[in-house]
């Protein structure tokens, strides 16, 4: 790791003030940033730690409306009983991220702000039609995720929370990369009052995306059987030593089937 200056923020306003120094980065759980710094792939001059800002933590469930503070850990999302009642797909997703030790530190805000193409949360945000709340504005998930590790966030903008209305049905299925255990393909499907949404992570060569083919099929019938014979194009899918675009295209359909089955269960 290169040398770095650490700052601990006490409030969102304090964090915004501290981020102005040098080539600074916000630090939430650090589960992606610190490994990147260790291997010298990331080299911020300064880190502004959001981990001690009380206002950023916690889960509120009011009826079907869910608000999750940005520094809420994967562990806390996975184990929130109220959330489990209204949106078990999301708690299930959180329980699949990394390993227990990673889930104790990693946060939802950090995950979506980083927008790793193999991260789980972006698919949920997109499929849930979530709103990403920052210190400056509220953004629809559709406008938030911009490509590989790219989001609509400005340099001094902090994700403070995500909020969504729990849909009638939701399910997530993930096929992990055998080595890294990140999503090699993960599909989050929802059926809510605005219809069906299916978002795919781990597979797209430009990051998380909604699959037209899956959504069209599931709009007709929200059943796994509706996906029999459906194929998604492999053209814009990633290829690497673990999975070719064609294999990922297959996984998109298979994981979508399993996600729907889970949503209906």
């Amino acid at each position: 790791m290169y040398s770095v200056n650490y700052h601990r923020a006490t409030s969102v306003a304090d964090a915004v003030k501290k981020i102005k120094s040098g080539d600074a980065k916000f630090l939430a759980g650090g589960m992606t940033l610190i490994p990147a710094m260790k291997t010298r792939l990331a080299a911020p001059s300064d880190l502004v730690d959001l981990g001690h800002i009380a206002e950023l933590k916690g889960i509120k469930v009011s009826g079907k409306t869910v608000t999750i503070g940005a520094t809420t850990t994967h562990f806390d999302v996975a184990n929130d009983e109220k959330l489990k009642k209204v949106c078990p797909a999301l708690t299930h997703l959180a329980s699949l991220i990394g390993d227990p030790a990673v889930r104790h530190r990693g946060t939802i805000g950090g995950s979506i702000a980083n927008n790793d193409p193999a991260a789980d949360y972006p698919s949920a945000m997109l499929a849930l039609g979530a709103t990403i709340v920052t210190n400056k504005r509220e953004l629809a998930a559709d406008k938030f995720f911009k490509g590989l590790f790219e989001t609509a966030l400005k340099d001094d903008e902090i994700v403070t929370a995500v909020t969504f209305t729990a849909p009638a049905k939701a399910g997530y299925a993930k096929f992990p990369n055998p080595a890294s255990r990140y999503a090699m393909t993960g599909v989050f499907v929802t059926k809510g009052k605005d219809g069906v949404r299916a978002a795919v992570t781990g597979a797209g060569d430009d990051g998380v995306f909604r699959s037209k083919e899956i959504e069209a099929a599931l709009t007709k019938k929200f059943e796994a059987s509706a996906l029999e014979g459906v194929s998604v194009p492999s053209k814009n899918l990633m290829g690497d030593i673990h999975a070719s675009p064609e294999y990922r295209a297959n996984l998109v359909v298979v994981m979508a089937k399993r996600a729907v089955a889970a949503a209906n269960a």
């Binding site: 650490y6 610190i34 880190l47 030790a101 990673v102 530190r105």
Partner: peptide
């Protein structure tokens, strides 16, 4: 996971946390 310790009662990877953090 060779570096797992408990921080405030929870298992964490001490290689992925700054001492100052």
């Amino acid at each position: 996971g060779a570096c797992v310790v408990h921080v405030d009662g929870k298992a964490v990877k001490s290689c992925t946390m700054l001492a100052v953090q």
